[in-house]
């Protein structure tokens, strides 16, 4: 099944145009973290921004979120500029775009309970008391933290990494955003948790048509999840296009290196491994138990130790 194409009236949700940002390092030298970057995210679209450490992708994420003014250029959310405007106006328009950060332990105010954290984020300010609480519970259930009521009084540090990321997603969707900017949301998570979080993001995309700006160092995730991919290297976008095209036939040498570095499960010598699943649906669904090897059924023998 191919990544579903964005529905509803198309049009840019986020327009980053000609953005540059320098930093002065302690030695006095200036580092250009972001150089003349332009990027657009359309309604319902998922754009993956791929880059390794030092590429400037996190700086760009902050600029996109309206958190860091660029030296040049502008960022527009639903046609409205985010920089150079009155603070009150910014506060009003920015809520259509919400962040999900890496699970670093600092993503939540450690002194607030889950309920308090989500109450801060809920879009409808008129909700109070029990109605607010049941709305929060339904938010939790939507991100598969079930039963929602059991999580209300917990603190973020009491949750597992996977649960915390879901909470971060719950906080993001509480505002009913048009766009979610996710900065390495899977990096802290275990391999077995990543699939769960990605599935959740996919479900949210299907149910609400939310757009994603998905920032990652892992180009393979980008391929599995995004419509379009932009590759960032040393502050610049070096390649930009449709996800399958960029990964199957990368034009830029750096992109080629990234794609080549995608480690598959093919070993050096011996066994034949099943081909890496490319895109979605090019290969038949794997059997749930993953066995593709020799057909001989094995009998088991109990051994004393190894």
């Amino acid at each position: 099944m191919s990544t579903p194409e964005p529905s509803a009236a198309p049009g840019p949700v986020l327009e980053i145009s000609g953005v540059s940002r320098n930093f002065r390092r302690r030695g006095g030298e200036t580092v250009a973290a972001v150089r003349g970057v332009s990027l657009t995210v359309n309604r319902g679209e998922t754009v993956a921004l791929v880059g390794e450490s030092g590429s400037g992708k996190s700086t760009l994420a902050r600029i996109a979120l309206g958190l860091l003014p660029p030296d040049t250029g502008q960022v527009k959310l639903l046609g409205e500029p985010l920089y150079g405007i009155a603070a009150a106006r910014l506060r009003r328009i920015r809520t259509a775009m919400q962040p999900v950060f890496q699970d670093s332990g600092a993503a939540f105010n450690p002194r607030r309970t889950v309920q308090q954290l989500l109450a801060q984020a809920v879009a409808d300010r008129s909700l109070q008391g029990t109605r607010l609480q049941s709305h929060i519970v339904s938010l939790l259930e939507r991100v598969r933290l079930r039963p929602g009521s059991e999580f209300l009084m917990r603190f973020p540090h009491e949750l597992s990494g996977g649960q915390r990321q879901r909470l971060a997603i719950a906080r993001a969707i509480a505002m009913n955003p048009i766009l979610i900017v996710a900065d390495e949301p899977l990096s802290g998570a275990d391999v077995s948790t990543r699939g769960q979080i990605l599935n959740l993001l996919l479900d949210l995309r299907d149910s609400s048509g939310v757009a994603y700006l998905f920032i990652t160092h892992d180009i393979a995730i980008a391929q599995a999840f995004a419509h379009r991919v932009a590759v960032m290297y040393r502050g610049e976008i070096v390649e930009h296009g449709d996800a399958t095209t960029v990964i199957d036939s990368p034009a830029d040498p750096y992109t080629r290196r990234l794609v080549a570095a995608i480690r598959t499960l093919d070993g050096p010598a011996t066994a034949a491994f099943p081909p890496r699943l490319r895109g979605n649906g090019a290969s038949p669904s794997p059997s749930r138990d993953g066995t593709t090897g020799p057909g001989a059924e094995s009998r088991l023998r109990q051994v004393a130790g190894l």
């Binding site: 699939g195 996919l202 599995a224 099943p274 979605n280 649906g281 794997p286």
Partner: peptide
Amino acid sequence: RGLLNAARAARDENGRFVVI
């Protein structure tokens, strides 16, 4: 098996990743 499915970004018939 679950780990391998996750590492291979295995998908089911709904396009969802096969997870533990």
